[in-house]
């Protein structure tokens, strides 16, 4: 006897993970190499976390801002198929334009109302050379930007942590300051595993209970056991 399940095709829920990367001239050399290495290094663990959470479909994209603002990975790639292609550094730091590009993709559509809270990770070593404040305001008009888990990593002491704090918009989540390659690897791995894990199975929350996001992301990464050298 036919026992076909009622309803159409089933689907797990999309979890958009977007890197927003500073590729300005000041990132040239060791910083950009470290960033390429750290992201590539994080992929296996990110895939493992995605495998452990079959009810979420982790989709990765990447924006870069430097000589130009563009999608380094334009089409959302299932993390199972995600491969990292190295980025090159050069140019200014048009972080505001990167926010505008991001905002366009967080509208409904192309986002759907059933997605899981996106994870947005901003990594920069400097300060915006364009109008970040207005662009950020526009970004935060989008419902999915407000509900996203927004994280920020500063590469070196010269990064404008006030801007990163603004992007995060949550007093409980501080910018992660990476002073060397080992710390960067650690932070990127945390963002792409522990945070993805938390965002994959969020519990229902009271509306507007928190100012930003609605995913408890747990303990921030501890770097006390890592190399403390200030390289950048």
């Amino acid at each position: 006897m036919e026992t076909k399940r009622p309803g159409g095709v089933l689907s797990n829920r999309p979890l958009h993970f977007i890197w927003i990367l500073d590729v300005s001239g000041s990132m040239e050399g060791d910083k950009i190499q470290s960033l390429n290495y750290a992201i590539r290094n994080s992929i296996p663990a990110m895939k493992s976390v995605a495998d452990e959470n079959p009810n979420a479909e982790v989709l990765v994209r990447c924006i870069t801002f430097g000589n130009e603002v563009k999608w380094h990975i334009r089409t959302a790639v299932n993390v199972a198929d995600f491969e990292w292609k190295d980025i090159q550094a050069g140019g200014m730091t048009p972080m505001g334009k990167a926010m505008n590009l991001l905002a366009d993709q967080l509208k409904i559509p192309p986002m759907t109302d059933r997605a899981l809270p996106p994870v947005l990770v901003l990594i920069t070593d400097g300060q915006p050379t364009d109008d970040f404040a207005t662009a950020y305001q526009n970004l935060m008009q989008e419902s999915w930007a407000k509900k996203a888990v927004r994280l920020g990593i500063a590469m070196g002491e010269d990064a404008d942590t006030a801007v990163i704090e603004k992007f995060i918009g949550n007093k409980e989540i501080k910018p992660l300051v990476a002073n060397n390659s080992e710390q960067l690897v650690n932070f990127i791995k945390w963002a792409s595993t522990a945070v993805v894990q938390a965002a994959s199975s969020p519990a229902s929350q009271l509306k507007d209970e928190k100012v930003t996001g609605n995913v408890p992301i747990g303990t921030m990464p501890d770097v006390s056991d890592l190399n403390q050298d200030v390289v950048w």
């Binding site: 997605a115 419902s143 969020p202 929350q205 009271l206 609605n214």
Partner: peptide, 11 residues
């Protein structure tokens, strides 16, 4: 309700 996304809900 278009306002209810990201597992947020009225209660």
């Amino acid at each position: 309700d278009e306002n209810l996304i990201a597992n947020e809900t009225y209660s």
